[in-house]
């Protein structure tokens, strides 16, 4: 069975899955339009698979922010595959491209569990949010609080961004919207102290999940990164095994700097997962490939819009399905 058919089969004839993939299709309309559109274009332009073809393909991938290192690896592998299968016609190479992309995407970890949020049943789980300025940490916490509350969990938020003007108020508004308690200190106070109080409050209220906000910081500010490590240590000290998740929030429009962000934040706080925000607005998503490929940090959530319900658990297969659904439909015809 062809690769596309396999993928297609996974997402049709199953209502729940179809719903998920529809959300992705919708949210990724722009990403898909430009990405697979470009690949289709490429294939239409070239009859033969030659050097020029690969050069153009390279550009398509670069324009999706995939990153040079990953692009070069991918092109090399594709060239080998084309040689091995003795492909001459560009039509045939379409499937090989998609297959390779998915392969890079999954890497060795095909297990679905890596994409699940690691939450403990019946005891307090702590999730720490980190990231640079303006990626959408506070908004993501609001959305996730909503999601978890819908699942019947008792959630407490800790307003650890004591630096940016209006950040505490922003989280408070989310707290009101979702109907969860927000633990806060005044602006300018020590974030570690806020988080400490958050942990104590969450314990005494027997909450299921504590979501900790932190101030955005550029990863090259050493003292700010140290401050973040300290916040994490406070959580570790108060609850053994916590934080259960450290989520790095990344803006999908970010270019190659996302890799530097992932690396530095990983060093400072042992990032366990990524939330990719603003994916609805960008024609990209390629950075996900690069991060999975180079850093092996799984993407756990994707922000696909501005509404409270627009945070989706990351489903790599649905993502790929969304990305390639135009091609899939063509195959079906």
């Amino acid at each position: 069975m062809s690769f596309f058919k396999k993928l297609k089969e996974k997402f049709t004839g199953n209502d729940e899955k179809e719903e998920v993939s529809d959300k992705y299709k919708e949210g990724l309309a722009k990403t898909r339009g430009s990405f697979s559109g470009k690949i289709n274009d490429l294939i239409a332009r070239y009859r033969k698979v030659d050097e020029d073809f690969f050069e153009d393909l390279e550009e398509i991938l670069i324009s999706a922010d995939v990153g040079m290192a990953t692009v070069m690896d991918l092109i090399d592998e594709l060239k080998m595959e084309v040689k091995r299968q003795n492909i001459k016609d560009s039509e045939q190479v379409r499937e090989v491209i998609s297959e390779k992309l998915v392969e890079i995407y999954y890497g060795d970890e095909t297990a679905q569990e890596v994409e699940q949020l690691n939450l403990k049943d019946g005891e307090l789980s702590v999730v720490l949010f980190v990231g640079v300025n303006g990626v959408g940490k506070t908004t993501t916490i609001g959305k996730l609080a909503h999601k978890l509350t819908q699942e019947g969990k008792k959630v407490v938020l800790a307003a650890g961004d004591t630096f940016r003007a209006g950040a505490i108020e922003q989280l408070e508004i989310w707290g009101e919207r979702v109907g969860v308690e927000v633990i806060k200190h005044s602006a300018g106070s020590d974030p570690a102290a806020v988080i400490y109080d958050g942990v104590q409050a969450a314990k005494s209220r027997q909450a299921d999940v504590l979501l900790c906000d932190t101030a955005g910081r550029l990863q090259n500010k050493v003292n700010l990164m140290n401050e973040l490590s300290k916040v994490k240590r406070v959580i570790e000290r108060e609850i053994p095994g916590a934080p259960h998740e450290v989520l790095l929030v990344l803006d999908a429009t970010t270019g190659q700097n996302a890799m530097s962000q992932a690396k530095t934040f990983q060093e400072a706080t042992d990032v366990t997962g990524i939330v990719l925000t603003k994916l609805d607005g960008t024609a990209k998503g390629g950075i996900v490939l690069a991060i999975r490929n180079e850093l092996h940090i799984p993407v756990k959530f994707v922000g696909l819009g501005e509404k409270m319900t627009d945070l989706q658990s990351f489903d790599a297969q649905a993502f790929v399905y969304g990305l390639f659904s135009d091609m899939l439909e063509e195959v079906n015809e």
Partner: peptide, 28 residues
Amino acid sequence: DAMTGQDAVNVAESFNEQLELTGVILTK
């Protein structure tokens, strides 16, 4: 945002077409 990737071009082009920008401020 100075960290914006390849899409910066599309964002700038689109805002410029619709609003006729007079300038750009690069942050971070």
